[in-house]
Design a protein around this nucleic acid. Structure first.
Lengths: 183, 183
DNA sequence: CCACCATGAGACATTGATGTCTCATATGGA
DNA sequence: TCCATATGAGACATCAATGTCTCATGGTGG
């Protein structure tokens, strides 16, 4: 009888990931509940998006924890991170574009934390001589987001296989497109 | 007296790039004309977006032509392409996200042409032994879009300098984050 | 079995954007 | 100068989404 708010959020995320302009009615249908009930749990579209943002932040942090960014080489950590974030990639893409609208409003500080943890990973790789130093950690972080969004889009549109997601992103992000002799 | 439709389009592109949900009223104000006049030139929001899409396609094709993708090494061609597309990167980012809404409707065939030209460039690099072959041209193309969108976002939000745009994208796309002995 | 409570369905007003219309004005050309 | 045309300003109806409300229902716990 009782609606599971988490299930509703996941359904909303799945729908809004594909169609970011879906109405509350469509979200409710996607979650298998009525619009009235949806509105009882989330006071409005803003509240829903904020809840999705919190969910996205939580999943990112869980992925960051699971990836153990301080263990092993930075490259291995990046690979683990991409793999751990794959399930949340679609949601991340939605929030990534959606947050550009919140111009005036303050950005959720959770993102800053996440940015800093990922930037720290790239910085660790640079200090350890593993990563090149002419690309800033901030850019590498942003590029990781962009590549994950592109990867999620490719998988979602059927242009790429889900099993290639991690490989595509990590290989391009770390190795680049150029063919190397040594490898 | 006569309104320059191209000027209106550029103003609309500049605004919608920053705020993709801007109303027709805001677009009109940004272009310095009244909403009535805006509506006289573009029969509605759909028509406006379609016109922007045509503009984006035209600018992309112009950039592709200017970059002379068949000349020199593929790497050099990629570098020229990114530089040539930089002015249109913001508009591209807008259309890239906006077009995800056109689910049912057919995608403008112009994009397919552009995709194919860029894919062909990456394929040329692979056949010439310049690019690695474990990353598909389709993925490299998509990644290029994603990185350009991220780069445009960084520049636009003030987190990155415009003069670094081309370098950031090309170096990451081609060389990757890993430090190389040979270079 | 009964009371309770969450839900579903739908009506309703509100809001914001849109598209259309009219009219006054100003600009440019004949 | 005079006319044609494009524009600006604003009124107006329409539409879609939203938020709120009521009421009936069905499942659950006591």
């Amino acid at each position: 009888m009782a609606v599971d708010p988490d299930h509703v959020l996941r359904a909303a995320a799945a729908l809004l990931t594909r169609k970011s302009t879906a109405t509350m009615d469509e979200v409710a249908k996607a979650a298998g509940i009525s619009r009235a009930t949806l509105h009882r749990h989330f006071a409005g579209r803003d509240a829903l998006v904020r809840a999705l943002e919190s969910l996205g932040i939580a999943e990112c942090e869980a992925a960051l924890d699971a990836a153990r960014l301080d263990d092993g080489t930075a490259s291995e950590a990046v690979r683990r991170l991409v793999g751990a974030m794959e399930p949340a990639a679609g949601l991340l893409g939605f929030l990534y574009t959606e947050n550009q609208l919140f111009e005036g409003e303050a950005q959720n500080p959770g993102w800053t934390l996440i940015d800093e943890r990922i930037s720290a990973l790239f910085r660790r790789g640079q200090l350890g001589g593993e990563f090149r130093i002419d690309l800033t950690p901030a850019w590498l972080t942003e590029a990781l987001y962009g590549l994950m969004a592109s990867g999620a889009w490719m998988v979602q549109s059927g242009k790429g296989a889900p099993r290639d997601f991690q490989h595509m992103i990590v290989e391009l992000l770390l190795g680049g497109a150029l063919r190397r002799e040594e490898s």
